[in-house]
Design a protein around this nucleic acid. Structure first.
Lengths: 248, 248
DNA sequence: GCTGGGAGAGGCTTA
DNA sequence: TAAGCCTTTCCCAGC
C-alpha cells in the first residue's frame, strides 16, 4: 500500500520531470467526451507518459479501457479517496479516476524518443514498385508516385504498352472492400480529369472473395504478390495475375 | 536494479497466476511477423497481462511500439542478458526482448474481467432511430435494423411516404469518403436485388466538404444531427437536412 | 475460421 | 487546422 500523500509526491515529480509513471490500485473511472463510459470499482493500472498521455489498463487486451492524449492532469485527495483528473479540449474530454486504495506507484526516468525502425510498410512496397513494374505486365511503366487528387492520393500512376493510363493501388495486406472502393474512386476521378478510359490495378498479397467480385464488377484488375520482409526493406518476390486484362 | 534470477522468479509466478506484470529496463526489441521492426537499446516498460497479451511501451504515445495478443511467452538468462521471447502462430509472429539491465519488475494480482460500460456508440443511435424516423422526414418509416447483404450490413432499411426504399447509414462521428462509398455500395446492391430505384440517406453529426461532393455525385442524401450522451444511451437532439431530396 | 465494419480508433503527412 | 489514409491497426459480431 502507498499512502495518498506519497502518491501525490510521486505524481508531482513524475509529471514535472516527464517520467513514466504507473499507479496500481482499486479505482473507479468515468469518461466523458466523444462518448461516455463508466468503469466500476476494481483494480487497474494507470499509466502516465512523458508526453502527458494517460491510459487505464485492465488485465486483458492490448488497448486500455480509457485513455487520453495531451491530457492536462491534476489530482487531489479527499477523505478516503485520491482523485485524478485528465482533461483536454478539442474535442473536450475528461477522465476522472477515483482511487480508493493505491497498491503501488512507481515512476521511471525514461527518454521520450521514438527509435522504432519498422520494415515492410506499404511505402516500402510502393517504393520498390516505382523502380519497376514490368514484371507485373510487360511494358507497364511507372509514371508518378503519390499523385495527389482532390480526394486522396494515388499510390502509383502508370502507363501500359498501349498508352493506357493505369492507377495502381498497393496494399501490404489482404485487400478488402474498402481497397476496391478506393481504387474505383481514383479511377473515376482520373477518367474525369483526363477524359480517357483508365485501368485500375489493385496489388495486394490476397483479396477476399466478395472484394474480388466487386472488383470485377467495376472492371478493375487484381494482381497478388508475395513479399519478403527483410532489413531494411520489404521485397516483392513474385506476382500472379488473377484476372484477365479487360483492355486487351 | 533487479537481478535476472529474481526477474525470472517474478515472471514465472505472474504468468502462472495470470497476474499483471510490468518490467522496466534497458532493452533491445526485435519483431518479426506481419511486418518487422527493430528497437535499439533503450529503457522501456514491458507489460504482460493475464490473457497473455504483451506490450512494449516507450515513454510516449498511447500505443506500444511492439505488442502481441495470445503470446506464448518464454524467457532465459544468458551471460549478461535476460531474453524474453513471445511467439504465436496465425499469423506467425515473434517478439524478442533482450534486457541488459532490469530496473524494476512488479506483478499485481488482478482480475481479467471487462466491466467497462460505454455509452454513445453507433448502435445506441441506431436503436433510437429504429423507434422513429419521422422527425427526419415526414412519413419515413423504419422497416428493418441491420439488414445483412452479401457484402456488409445495412444499418436501417426504411420506406418513405411514396413507397420508396431508403437505405439509412448512421455514423456517430463526422462522415468521410468511406461512409459515402459504403452507402453507395449498399444502395447499388439493394437496387439490384429489389430491381427498384432506392434512396440512400447518410446520417451523421457532420460531413467533410469533399465527402459531401461525392455524396451529391452519387445522388445520395445527407442529414446532420446533434446527439447528447446520457446514461445509459445516446439521444438524438435535432436533425437538419443539408441536401434536397432528389426523389421529390 | 473468414469477413465486414466500428472505434472515444491512433498516428502521420500534406495541403 | 482539416482531410485523407495506413496500421503488425485492435476488437467484436455473424456466418
Amino acid at each position: 500500500m502507498v499512502s495518498f500523500n506519497k502518491t501525490a509526491e510521486i505524481l508531482d515529480d513524475a509529471v514535472k520531470s516527464k517520467k513514466m509513471l504507473s499507479i496500481v490500485g482499486s479505482c473507479y473511472v468515468e469518461y466523458w467526451g466523444r462518448a461516455a463510459s463508466k468503469l466500476p470499482k476494481g483494480k487497474r493500472m494507470l499509466l502516465i507518459k512523458g508526453d502527458n498521455s494517460i491510459a487505464i489498463h485492465q488485465n486483458r487486451l492490448l488497448r486500455p479501457t480509457n485513455y487520453m492524449m495531451n491530457a492536462s492532469i491534476s489530482w487531489n485527495q479527499e477523505e478516503n479517496t485520491f482523485i485524478l483528473n485528465a482533461r483536454k479540449s478539442n474535442p473536450k474530454e475528461s477522465i476522472k479516476v477515483i482511487f480508493y486504495e493505491i497498491e503501488a506507484a512507481h515512476s521511471y526516468e525514461m527518454t521520450c524518443s521514438d527509435d522504432l525502425r519498422l520494415f515492410g510498410s506499404e511505402k516500402d512496397l510502393s517504393n520498390q514498385l516505382m523502380q519497376d513494374l514490368s514484371f507485373l505486365e510487360e511494358g507497364l511503366k511507372p509514371v508518378q508516385q503519390e499523385s495527389p487528387l482532390r480526394k486522396g492520393v494515388i499510390d502509383i500512376l502508370a502507363e501500359d504498352k498501349n498508352g493506357n493510363i493505369a492507377v495502381v493501388e498497393v496494399k501490404r495486406r489482404k485487400a478488402d472492400l474498402n481497397s476496391v472502393m478506393q481504387l474505383h474512386r481514383y479511377v473515376k476521378q482520373v477518367e474525369r480529369i483526363k477524359n480517357k478510359k483508365t485501368r485500375g490495378i489493385l496489388l495486394a498479397p490476397e483479396i477476399g472473395k466478395h472484394s474480388m467480385e466487386l472488383l470485377e464488377n467495376y472492371g478493375l484488375e487484381f494482381f497478388s504478390f508475395d513479399f519478403e520482409i527483410s532489413n531494411p526493406k520489404a521485397k516483392i518476390k513474385g506476382i500472379n495475375k488473377t484476372q484477365k486484362t479487360l483492355f486487351d
